[in-house]
């Protein structure tokens, strides 16, 4: 038995040492969301192959890690994440299990896309679980603002330059191109979203704060009484009264939230429920970030106009 054990260990070590690193190839980038994937593709161009971990229709707060996540993270040269505490429940243990020191916090291949983002809704004072599943660093749904997409892109370009300095100039050129694209997109979408200015909405979750901030509409309340806490009857009653008072006529919900409660509130307030996926690729004709933004704003404008 002892001899067998020794041979087994020797065979395993030999097999491990036999696995040599691969030849020259594209940079492997893992992005946690499709929005980041799109940005990496814009900056990295032909030098990168990118995969997104989360499916756009998945609730980011309840992601069930799949085995392939660890395999992809193990092979990654760069990990691009939304950061703050957006992927906090599930990503850090996977990064540890991936055995890839490059993508660990502070590693050369770790890109926190939130660096430099002017954050909204940073909790003030002492934070406790009484506040629900509160985002302790501020609202992490920051990508739905073209100005923030430019910052995301700069963070990605910095990350790519770190691991692939030979193509630094190309990444810089692509970054400039994306910044111009975002400037044009902002001009275009500000015109498109003009009817939303000053309008009041109700949302299921705090996904839309940055969009509202950029395009001048307000989210006056949420179906969740506190982030991550299921709606209760008393909270919904208060919300319905407020919606009536403030004449909020549109409820925004993401595809991964149930329909029953939004419909219930809509019936009692005469509001319209509009289902919008906040992520690239979650709905038809949203396979790029500019298309996603146009799609979201068009849906909101149509919803506002239909209830007037």
């Amino acid at each position: 038995m002892k001899r067998m054990l020794v041979w087994l260990i020797v065979a395993l070590v030999a097999l491990m040492l036999a696995i040599a690193p691969g030849a020259a190839r594209k940079l492997r980038v893992v992005a946690t969301t499709n929005d980041l994937k799109w940005a990496v593709e814009q900056i990295g161009g032909k030098n990168v192959e990118v995969v997104a971990l989360m499916h756009p229709l998945q609730n980011p707060h309840t992601v069930q890690p799949r085995p392939s996540f660890i395999v992809q993270l193990n092979r990654a040269d760069l990990l691009v994440r939304i950061g703050l505490d957006y992927e906090e429940p599930w990503l850090p243990p996977l990064v540890e299990e991936s055995r890839n020191p490059k993508i660990r916090r502070g590693g050369v291949g770790d890109v926190d896309a939130s660096i430099g983002i002017p954050l909204l809704e940073i909790p003030q004072g002492r934070i406790t679980r009484e506040q629900g599943e509160v985002h302790i660093f501020g609202n992490p749904h920051y990508w739905l603002d073209p100005e923030n997409m430019k910052i995301i892109a700069r963070n990605i370009a910095n990350g790519l330059r770190r691991i692939d300095p030979a193509n630094a100039d190309e990444y810089e050129r692509n970054l400039k191109r994306l910044e111009r694209m975002m400037d044009d997109l902002l001009d275009e979408t500000l015109k498109l979203a003009a009817p939303l200015r000053g309008e009041k909405f109700v949302a299921y979750h705090t996904t839309w704060s940055y969009l509202a901030n950029r395009y001048g509409f307000r989210v006056i309340g949420y179906l969740e009484p506190k982030p991550g806490i299921p709606p209760s009857a008393s909270h919904l009653a208060d919300l319905i009264v407020r919606m009536r008072q403030e004449k909020a006529k549109v409820i925004i919900k993401e595809p991964f939230y149930e329909n029953r409660i939004p419909n219930m509130v809509a019936q009692r307030t005469g509001a319209k429920v509009v289902e919008i996926c906040p992520t690239v690729g979650g709905e038809p004709d949203t396979e790029t970030y500019p298309k996603l933004l146009r799609h979201i704003l068009t849906k909101l404008v149509n919803a506002v106009q239909s209830v007037k």
Partner: peptide
């Protein structure tokens, strides 16, 4: 914004850390 982030987190962003040196 980066300054605000630094103040908030008390840490340097990864793109300002020494790892930014060309590899």
């Amino acid at each position: 914004a980066e300054l605000a982030s630094l103040k908030r987190n008390g840490t340097a962003p990864s793109n300002l850390q020494p790892s930014a040196i060309q590899q």
